[in-house]
């Protein structure tokens, strides 16, 4: 595991050596904050909270995290640098973790850069700091779950477009399963029993994230995101070791 720090450093700084970081951060912030203002009615609600910001994150993460994840392995394969990387004294697990953690840290940075929103609600009202903290924690854990999926799909192909489309598709399914419109459809129109609908929605990012957004930190939800990311990374190692 001692090789993770140099890999992490190279990968994390790599975002800032190319336009990737700047384009991503600016567009992501415009999109997420824009959703909070124009779709979520941030001011209109007159509530000192960031619900209007967080409720759109699961949907925004679908394209944005797929965009960060698609390059993780596809780019190494295309550029041939994967041959360099895997003839350096690193294990596959170290390489997978180093890259994953760097990308995750980058996503956490993108999420935390919404801090002016926090300052705004603190200035205008008296927000519930516990809910804000748990929402941020939940967003970061959820980003880890998304990223695990995207890192895995990226390892399958050297084509970044294929990797992106696959990631978007899988992540979309994983959000959809917990979307109230979809679960209502399953329970109402298809008349599936409630326990089955619960099982299905339990596989969704959204179901587990919604608890955080309400201010509830349930170990079950924490475990969901961590184990999903862990399982995907385990498969990721297997795919690369083939």
């Amino acid at each position: 595991m001692s090789q993770i720090p140099p890999l992490f450093k190279r990968e994390f700084l790599g975002y800032f050596r190319s336009p990737v970081a700047y384009v991503f951060l600016v567009v992501f912030l415009m999109a997420s904050v824009g959703c909070a203002f124009f779709l979520g009615g941030f001011f209109r609600n007159e509530i000192a909270g960031l619900d209007s910001y967080f409720q759109f994150l699961p949907w925004l993460f679908i394209p944005f995290i797929s965009a960060v994840g698609m390059r993780l392995w596809s780019e190494e394969k295309r550029a041939g640098t994967i041959e360099l990387l895997f003839t350096l004294p690193v294990t596959t697990l170290e390489a997978v973790l180093g890259k994953f953690l760097a990308a995750w840290a980058f996503l956490c940075l993108a999420i935390l850069l919404s801090f002016p929103m926090v300052l705004t609600v603190a200035y205008l009202g008296d927000p519930d700091w516990g809910v804000l903290a748990s929402s941020y924690l939940g967003s970061m854990l959820m980003a880890g779950g998304f990223l695990g999926v995207c890192s895995l799909t990226s390892a399958f192909t050297k084509n970044q477009v294929v990797s992106f489309v696959l990631s978007v598709f899988v992540c979309f399914l994983l959000v959809l399963l917990g979307w109230s419109v979809f679960t209502d459809f399953l329970g109402g129109y298809l008349a599936l029993p409630a326990w089955l609908v619960d099982v299905v929605s339990n596989f969704s990012f959204k179901t587990h994230f919604d608890a955080f957004a309400k201010g509830i930190i349930d170990p079950k939800d924490v475990m969901f995101f961590l184990s999903l990311a862990g399982f995907c990374l385990f498969l990721n190692v297997l795919v690369l070791d083939r």
């Binding site: 720090p5 140099p6 450093k9 050596r17 041939g80 360099l84 350096l88 004294p89």
Partner: peptide, 30 residues
């Protein structure tokens, strides 16, 4: 891999890094 110095065909390297940064990374990994 620790014992071997390997130059792959076409000498792949991370394109966005400078020569100094790249060799610094290799040194850390080594």
């Amino acid at each position: 891999k620790r014992l071997v110095g390997y130059l792959p065909e076409n000498a792949p390297a991370y394109p966005e890094m400078t020569v100094g940064e790249f060799l610094g990374f290799i040194a850390e990994i080594r």
